[in-house]
Design a protein around this nucleic acid. Structure first.
Lengths: 234, 234, 234, 234
DNA sequence: TATGAATGAGGCTTCATTCAT
DNA sequence: AATGAATGAAGCCTCATTCAT
């Protein structure tokens, strides 16, 4: 019996090691992607950084593109999680929570977000990984229904403007997308107040499409915020 | 004398032809870039579409990257023009004109805008064309001063929130950036109401950062809107 | 004692299992070779089809080429057996029996024969398995003496033309070789009468080099045929 | 005018050089193929032997396989020519001329014939060059009609056995195929009388399928031979 | 001056073989 | 003894750039 157990243990151990190495590849790829231009990252370099042989990479990924696809999917799933949490929160009376959660997730590691943006642009029509790209889209679209519902509710409550519900979250997506790009664009990023700028933009994202609301700069608006807003209107 | 004249004419003629061919190269490159994946566009193809020899391309551009840089610069200069017109208009009492002009210019040919975005991402650290990239940044920054002034003015008038002036135009830039991406992202573009969506976003862009203003969907805001704006200004 | 017995039994058992597995590898390799292009058959695939680990394959064969060599040798030994039977028959008064047996053996599974032909072409100068290739040649040559004798006899009887005896069996070998290729060559195999064609060719093989004999199409020559043969011999 | 002429001349010159280089590649490939095992011939080596850069090869051939296909097609066209000549001759009263011409063409450079055989085996299902392979088959089949006609005629005259006409030329093809293999097979080619053997086989090829004819070793059968043949028919 | 053939560095991928468990 | 993850040599192919005509 101990034999059997140890054998099963060994197998489990091996699998764990295998997965660990997979993660090592991903990490190495990420490290390289974030350090240098995407198309200067080669499989050889990834393997070297991961500390393994080039051939080993292909035990984990069928093609180079699959590594990239994996990075994208991992990232998107993570975003989805944050968004889901935000949607739940929004359902509990904090209408901006969805957008806020979404923005914060995407701006948490903007360099990673941007990388994924760029990867998506390049891999849009890669024949291999067509399936993974599809999953990416499915992952995104799976959020749409709940977002639509949420937006519809907020429109009904008069919080949001009465436009097709997807206008709201797509505008939000767009702003997040651009905000990330803003962080790294050489034309602008000589500034040092990026953090505040991102908060400003997040707030725009949170309140964009709202009916007759004040915009606010503070990232954590006090409960009394709406009241004070209304007051300031007078 | 007639000889001299015709010689000068010939030279002028030649220059014209030379420039025309240069444009042909740019056009060919653009045509290809918009048709297929960026990294499947080769110098050979560009020359073929332009109807000239590959070697000739190198009489006009030192490297392939210079062609791309040129496309970017041409585009940015065009944007700058629209923005300048908007700024002037804004100075004449239409505070949203700058943002509006900017958005409309970038969304006029979103596919081209996106192409330039992608090129910029790829060429960010190309050793050759460092100079051109620098010029791109200079072109953009040259707008900053006037934008800053404009924003400062609008902040002073209470139209815009009192945050560092560049927050306003950078947020605007970001939204435009994302809006363009939105047009082409396979996750969302199965929809058919892109035009309306872009108008919605443009309006957000126009009014984002405004103090206590209503957002509006209509691209041509009704009189009532402006009235309310004016009120809040008081 | 029972211990010893069972131990010996166990060893014998193991050996049997070992040999069975070896055959499994061969079978798997054959299956794959006959299914797809030779150079798309990898050791991994062979192991997978054989239902064992890749490493195990190397407990049975030192190199991949050894597997192929084994296939060739097994096949050649089988041919040799049929030929030997034919030679014996020929010695008992049926002069065509040797050729007939040979052709029938090779055309029994032409796809296998062709595979071996192709393998031989590829492995002709493989450094490893030089020994096995040599054995293949030895196996073939071991038939030569008896064939030579047989042919010499038939020449003496006036059945065959008076040329060096090996001319006869080598011509036979050549025709068989080509007949097999004929079965699979895409230029010709759109036809449906392969079986009849092979019989025709077999008959040519059987009677080729005969002195003044009729050729016949029927695979089982009528009694009358032999009569006429005997007559012409006179 | 002289300008135009010289320009056209230069272009023609260039084309000639280009084609010459193409032939150089083919020759280099052939040289290598005949020297070492097929799959040890790499594009790099071919380029090196041809004295050009690796990239240049790809200006002439889209893929490595295209080089091989070209070798095959060139060869097959050559065979076809010889066969055509033989068929014409056969029409003029020399019934064996077609087979004879065919055999002689294929056995003229048996090493090349064998190479083509092997290439064909390997490239049978190469996705690229599917077109070329098809042409190969078409080239072969284009001979079939005239061969069929010829055979039908000879059958009518009672020269050949009354079997489907294609039996005759396919048997011939098979024998040639095998004869070539015979020349190089390490099991047999330790002999020194290859030339005589090939003549013997050629004669078999020429007379195979004949009705009641003597086979003969001499390539130019004496007049008396036919007389004896006729006798044996009785 | 325009051309396009030539170049070769460098990318991705495959697979026979090894070896630690 | 059986396994299969790891390895890296080696192959094919692309394409920006050069340069002789």
């Amino acid at each position: 019996m101990s034999d059997k157990t140890s054998s099963a243990d060994r197998i489990r151990e091996k699998k764990k090691l295998f997965l660990a190495r997979e993660q090592k590849i991903i990490d190495a790829a990420l490290e390289l992607f974030l350090k240098e231009s995407i198309d200067r990252v080669t499989v050889s370099k990834i393997a070297a950084v991961a500390g393994i042989g080039k051939g080993t990479v292909y035990k984990h990924f069928l093609t180079k593109n699959e590594i990239l696809a994996r990075i994208m999917l991992d990232y998107e799933r993570n975003i989805t999680k944050s968004l889901a949490a935000g949607i739940i929160k929004a359902g509990k009376g904090d209408p901006g929570a969805a957008a806020k959660g979404y923005f914060e997730a995407r701006l948490a590691r903007p360099e990673l977000d941007r990388l994924v943006q760029q990867l998506e642009g390049r891999l849009a029509d890669a024949a291999d990984i067509a399936e993974q790209i599809d999953e990416l889209h499915r992952t995104r679209r799976s959020n749409e229904e709940s977002l639509s519902e949420l937006m519809t509710g907020l429109i009904g409550e008069g919080v949001l403007e009465d436009v097709p519900p997807h206008f709201h979250y797509l505008a939000c997506w767009a702003l997040a997308q651009g905000a990330v790009e803003l962080c790294f664009n050489q034309s602008w990023n000589y500034r040092t107040d990026t953090k505040e700028l991102m908060e400003f933009i997040t707030n725009i994202g949170v309140s964009m499409g709202n009916r007759g609301q004040y915009h606010s700069t503070s990232s954590k608006p006090p409960a009394g915020k709406n009241a004070s807003k209304n007051k300031s209107k007078k």
